[in-house]
């Protein structure tokens, strides 16, 4: 919006103690027998104009966090502040008015576009829903958006199935940009694309960020891509953030044992280094989010776990260099 001019470092999104629990129903009368703690107490800030990377393995709650931040999934508890407004408790009409400021780019470009709508009407949908533009002005805006994401504006009459994965993802980006949002959640936007196309899409996202002053929450399991695009990185494990730090600090000297293990799994494109490097191989599987371990959630697989880890949940601490870690032994 025009009146809050972008200031570097100003917090745009603040998430505090976000929890998303899904009930498990079973039996004849569908009684609730448990809860899946998909997201269980997540807190982070995103400053205006920055990119916060959110990494973690499959099923750790990354996507649910991203969806809850946009209220596409209702939060069980916690606050989600978007430019000072708590959207976790907004009514549906007030929430609808907030929607133009926050958008999402989806993972699967084949599922995120309605196969029965032309590209033009897909990109125009946000414009017509919020009634900002009509008639030829809207058509001009659609052409402008398609041009901005590197697509030929004359493609507006075509259907999504006529495009490749990378082009479809660009259509999805054009739709997300239509209402001039401040904040975009990118939910694994490159995971379904060929490696050769991934770089194009990431570069497009970076270029758009620079030009339009966008703020991203970039969800991914691709650690090297996150290193490329993110300013700060949060690492999630089983519904909780275990470490949040500046990109260089996190990749240079990870403090949490899970981050260390995760980063050691990224191959280094140098056979000599790769052969002698220490790999941390975690044992066992991720515990079920319906029945997480006591104390520290990572203790069942942690190479340095002690008795204390089972009894006491590690606090979310701020270290001297400004990073946050949830581990008793990190210094």
């Amino acid at each position: 919006m025009a009146f809050d001019s972008p200031k570097a470092g100003e917090t745009l999104v603040r998430v505090a103690d976000l929890k998303v629990h899904f009930p498990i129903h079973a039996g004849l009368i569908r009684r609730q027998v448990g809860t899946v703690r998909a997201v269980d107490g997540v807190s982070f800030d995103v400053a205006r104009g920055e990119t916060l990377g959110l990494v973690g393995e499959s099923g750790c709650g990354k996507s649910t966090t991203g969806r809850a931040v946009l209220r596409l999934v209702d939060a069980t508890a916690g606050r989600i502040e978007m430019a000072g407004t708590d959207i976790a408790s907004l009514g549906s009409e007030a929430l609808r008015r907030m929607r133009p400021r926050m958008q999402m780019i989806f993972q699967d470009p084949h599922a995120s576009l309605n196969p029965r709508m032309t590209v033009g009407s897909i990109v125009a949908e946000p414009l017509s829903e919020h009634g900002t533009l009509r008639g030829s002005a809207r058509q001009r805006r659609v052409e402008e958006l398609l041009d901005a994401v590197g697509l030929n504006p004359s493609f507006a009459n075509r259907y999504p199935h006529e495009f490749s994965g990378g082009q479809r993802q660009r259509i999805g980006i054009a739709r997300a940009l239509a209402l001039d949002p401040d904040f975009i959640v990118c939910d694994e936007p490159i995971a379904a694309l060929d490696v050769s196309i991934q770089a194009q899409v990431v570069n497009l996202l970076e270029e758009l960020q620079e030009r339009l002053g966008l703020t991203y929450l970039f969800i991914s399991h691709d650690l090297s891509m996150v290193r490329h695009i993110a300013d700060r990185v949060a690492v999630m494990y089983l519904g909780k953030i275990v470490e949040l730090a500046d990109r260089e600090a996190l990749y240079g000297a990870p403090k949490h044992p899970y981050t260390q293990a995760l980063l050691s799994a990224v191959p280094i494109p140098n056979p000599k280094v790769e052969a002698t490097r220490r790999h941390i191989i975690l044992k066992g599987d991720v515990p079920s989010p319906a029945n997480p371990p006591s104390g520290c959630r990572f203790r069942t697989r942690c190479p340095i776990a002690e008795a204390r880890c089972a009894a006491e949940e590690p606090a979310w601490r701020k270290l001297d260099d400004g990073r946050h870690v949830a581990c008793h032994f990190a210094t």
Partner: peptide, 25 residues
């Protein structure tokens, strides 16, 4: 499907989701 989620994230109202995204499909 994600396109219905996308419509929700845009702020499309329920009856429009039905007539625009569900019925044609």
């Amino acid at each position: 499907r994600e396109f219905v989620l996308a419509a929700k994230s845009i702020g499309t109202r329920g009856h429009r989701i039905i007539t625009r995204h569900l019925l044609p499909n």
